[in-house]
């Protein structure tokens, strides 16, 4: 369907920093191109004909895209947000570790009350650190955020046609492993030993991934 159009527009903006202007231009283009493409289909044009006509109608977009390239101000802002994000992430991670360390240390204390207090402190620290992470992410304007997972994943999928298949296969694989684990555990009641399924399953999944990757390289 119009996925080809999406990919074409995506390609035009490859390497263009995600400034607000660039994202808006991309969204505007995408909407209009899709509509044009669908109109061609409605007129009875074939899939590839509609695609060629739509692409041809765009003309030379280089100049337009050059206009939305970032300026010095954008680069400085981006650097500020990147540093802030790195600093806050480091603080949050250090806080998590500190919380865990307090709990471990409290195990050495002779009174039980200290351990409960340590867990309470841990929870407070975790809440604070998590709030910091969420705040940092939410308060960073979208154009300065790291590329989101979807985009990165889409690029990955383009590079390795079939990446989606692997993802689907691995999802299914882990469901099967979980089922096998639960069924064997309940049937044998040997919970003490059935955990061995997990490391084995992890090993097997690595092997499957490698085999699939090698096969692609051959193709």
């Amino acid at each position: 369907m119009s996925q080809k159009i999406d990919r074409y527009v995506q390609g035009l903006f490859e390497g263009v920093p995600r400034t607000k202007k660039a994202l808006e231009l991309k969204e505007e283009l995408l909407g209009n191109m899709r509509e044009r493409y669908e109109d061609y289909l409605r007129e009875g044009k074939s899939d590839s004909e509609a695609y060629s006509l739509t692409v041809a109608s765009m003309g030379d977009l280089d100049e337009l895209i050059a206009q939305v390239m970032p300026d010095e101000h954008f680069r400085q802002e981006a650097q500020y947000y990147r540093r802030r994000s790195a600093r806050n992430t480091a603080i949050a991670v250090a806080t998590y570790i500190l919380g865990a360390a307090i709990v471990v240390a409290s195990a050495l204390a002779p009174w039980e009350g200290v351990q409960i207090l340590a867990v309470v402190i841990l929870l407070v620290l975790v809440a604070g650190a998590t709030a910091l992470l969420i705040y940092t992410e939410m308060s960073t304007p979208v154009e300065y955020r790291e590329e989101d997972q979807d985009d990165r994943w889409m690029k990955e999928a383009q590079r390795h046609p079939g990446g989606q298949t692997v993802k689907a296969v691995m999802n299914l694989y882990w469901i099967v492993v979980t089922t096998v684990y639960l069924v064997t555990s309940f049937l044998t009641a040997a919970w003490g030993i059935t955990w061995i399924i997990w490391p084995l399953a992890g090993l097997l999944s690595a092997i499957i991934r490698t085999v699939i990757a090698l096969r692609w390289q051959h193709e």
């Binding site: 109608s57 765009m58 977009l61």
Partner: peptide, 9 residues
Amino acid sequence: ELKEATLYT
């Protein structure tokens, strides 16, 4: 028919 590029510029 205007080219998209012309239109958006």
